[in-house]
Design a protein around this nucleic acid. Structure first.
Length: 430
RNA sequence: GGAGAGGUGCCGGAGUCUGGUCGAUCGGACCGCACUGCUAAUGCGGGGACCACCUUCAAGUGGUCCGUGGGUUCAAAUCCCACCCUCUCCGCCA
C-alpha cells in the first residue's frame, strides 16, 4: 500500500510516478482515493468533536450522581444521549468511507523507482548484464527440449503426475528427483553465510496473503482452502515477509536476511495451454527464496546484494544467462524496482526466467505493518522489504537438461551439484 | 474434538465479582538528572502506539487502543455475544 499522506503532500509527484506504469484507469483510481481521503478526514473530525462532547457529558453525569443530584444527572444524560446518536451516525459513515478508501488503496500499485526504465511491456525490458553465452555456440545435441531428454532417461514422468493430480503437475524420479533436491540444497548452502534458514508454513491466512499484495486483486491465481479459510503460498515471499508483521523492530536488527526452501502453488489461471510440456510451468514447484527487511536507506544496496547472490548461483552452475531490468509497464503491483535473471535453454530456444529480484520499498511492509524504531528517537518508521528467487528449481533443472546434454543423450551433472548427488556425475539411461 | 484456566503498556503483574475519579496501581527494565574517584547502590524525574486538528521547529488540542469483532449503557479493561490465540488435562494423530 502506498502512503495515503503522499496523496495530500505530493499529489502531483504521486500522479506522475504512477502514470509511468502506463495505465489510465489507475489515475482515475488515484483521484477517487484522494477525494475519498479528504472526505474521510472531514467526517472523522466531526465525529471526534461529538465524541469529545459525549465523553465530557458522561463525566459530568458521574459527577452529578456522586453528588446525589439526580435531576441534573438525568438532564445531562439526555443531552449526552442526543449527542451520542449523532456520533453513531457519523461513525458509521466514517467506517464506510474508511473501508472504501482501504479497498482503493489496496489496489493501487507501488510507485516505480526513479531509475526504473520506462516502457510499455516486457518487450521494453533492457538487458543490463550479459548475455553470457558459450563462445562457440550450441551444438546440435543440445538442441533437444528437456522433456524429451528427461523422459527418455526415465527421470521425468509427467504422464503419471497427470494421472495422480491432473494437468500441469510434474514428477521427477530417481536422479531427476535427486537433482531437484540438490538444487535446493545448493542454493541454501551458498547463502547460509548471511541468511537465516527458515522452514515456514505453506498454508497461510487471508491477512497474510493480503500483506504481500496477492489479495485482494489476484485471488484467482492462488489455491484457496475454503473450509479452513487458508491459502496455499505461491512463494516463500508470503510467509517470510509477514514473519515480522505487526512488530516493531530495533533499527540495530536491520537488515534482516532470511531464506527458505518451500513448495510453491499457483493456479496459473491465465496460462491454460501455455508451456504445458516439461517443467516450465506447473501448479506446484520448488523454490528457494532469499528475502531482506531493511531500513529505507539500506534498500538500494540490498537490491544489488540479492541480485548478485542470485546471479552467483546461476553462474556457479555454468549456465548461459543474462540479467534484464523490468520496465515500468511490466512491473508487478508491489514492485518499486526489479530485475530478472534469465537462463538460456538451447533445446527450447528460449530465455527462461529463473529468478526475479525485487525491492518493494515500504509497500508490503505497510500492509504487513513491519516497523522499526531508532534508539533514542520518538516514533516508528515503516521498514522496507526485498526478495528474490535464489533459485526456481524446475526451470533451472530444465536448463541443465538442455545445456548439459551430451551427444549420447545422457546429461552431465554440473560440478557444483555433485556433492548432493550421491556420487552421480552423469545421468544416463536407466 | 471435549473440559477447565487465561490473553492488560518493553517485561512481570493488579484492576474485572460491585461500570464513572482507569490509558490504567505496583515492581522491574530503560532514559535523564543528582550523589559517587569509577562501577554498584541510593534519591528525584520521565515514558507507548496510532489518527485527526493546529502550528508545521518546539509545544498544544481532541479522538482511538486493555486478544479481535460486535452488542448493552449517558458512560465499558470491567456486563453480554461470537471468534482467534496460549496453557493444563482428556481424546486423536506423523
Amino acid at each position: 500500500m502506498i502512503d495515503v499522506r503522499l496523496l495530500r503532500t505530493d499529489p502531483e509527484g504521486t500522479r506522475a510516478a504512477l502514470a509511468r506504469r502506463g495505465s489510465p484507469e489507475l489515475l482515475d483510481q488515484l483521484a477517487e482515493a484522494t477525494s475519498t481521503d479528504s472526505r474521510l478526514r472531514e467526517i472523522q473530525t466531526q465525529r471526534d468533536t461529538l465524541r469529545a462532547e459525549v465523553n465530557d457529558l458522561s463525566k459530568q453525569v458521574g459527577q452529578a450522581r456522586r453528588n446525589g443530584d439526580t435531576a441534573a444527572a438525568e438532564e445531562l444524560q439526555a443531552r449526552s444521549r442526543a449527542a451520542g446518536e449523532q456520533e453513531k451516525a457519523l461513525a458509521a459513515e466514517a467506517d464506510d468511507v474508511a473501508a472504501r478508501l482501504r479497498d482503493l488503496l489496496l489496489r493501487i500499485p507501488n510507485l516505480p523507482h526513479p531509475d526504473a526504465p520506462d516502457g510499455a511491456s516486457d518487450h521494453d525490458n533492457p538487458v543490463v548484464k550479459g548475455p553470457f553465452l558459450p563462445a562457440d555456440g550450441f551444438p546440435e545435441h543440445q538442441r533437444v527440449p528437456h522433456w524429451e531428454t528427461a523422459t527418455a532417461l526415465g527421470i521425468l514422468d509427467n504422464e503419471r503426475a497427470t494421472k495422480i493430480s491432473g494437468a500441469m503437475f510434474t514428477m521427477q524420479r530417481g536422479p531427476g528427483a535427486q537433482l531437484s533436491r540438490a538444487l535446493c540444497q545448493y542454493a541454501l548452502d551458498r547463502n547460509s553465510d548471511a541468511f537465516e534458514e527458515i522452514r515456514p508454513p505453506s498454508l497461510v491466512t487471508t491477512a497474510t496473503l493480503t500483506a504481500t499484495g496477492q489479495l485482494p486483486k489476484f485471488a484467482d491465481d492462488a489455491y484457496a482452502i475454503e473450509r479452513d479459510d487458508l491459502w496455499c503460498i505461491p512463494t516463500a515471499e508470503v510467509p517470510l515477509t509477514s514473519l515480522y508483521g505487526g512488530e516493531v523492530l530495533d533499527e540495530a536488527q536491520l537488515p534482516i536476511r532470511m531464506m527458505a526452501y518451500t513448495p510453491c502453488y499457483r493456479r496459473e489461471a491465465g496460462s491454460a495451454g501455455r508451456d504445458t510440456r516439461g517443467m516450465l510451468r506447473a501448479h506446484e514447484f520448488d523454490k528457494v527464496e532469499i528475502l531482506a527487511v531493511t531500513t529505507p536507506e539500506q534498500g538500494a544496496a540490498m537490491l544489488l546484494e540479492l541480485r548478485d547472490r542470485a546471479e552467483a548461483l546461476i553462474a556457479g552452475l555454468g549456465l548461459p544467462y543474462r540479467i534484464i531490468e523490468i520496465c515500468t509497464g511490466d512491473m508487478g503491483q508491489s514492485h518499486h524496482r526489479s530485475f530478472d535473471i534469465e537462463v538460456y535453454a538451447p533445446g527450447c530456444d528460449n530465455w527462461l526466467e529463473v529468478s526475479s529480484v525485487s525491492w518493494f520499498s515500504d509497500y508490503q511492509a505497510r500492509r504487513a505493518d513491519i516497523r522499526f524504531r531508532t534508539t533514542g528517537e520518538k516514533g516508528t518508521t515503516i521498514a522496507n522489504t526485498l526478495n528474490g528467487s535464489a533459485l526456481a528449481v524446475p526451470r533451472v533443472w530444465a536448463a541443465i537438461m538442455e545445456n548439459y546434454r551430451q551427444a549420447d543423450g545422457s546429461v552431465v551433472v554440473p560440478e557444483a551439484l555433485r556433492p548432493y548427488m550421491r556420487g552421480v556425475e552423469v545421468i544416463g539411461p536407466r
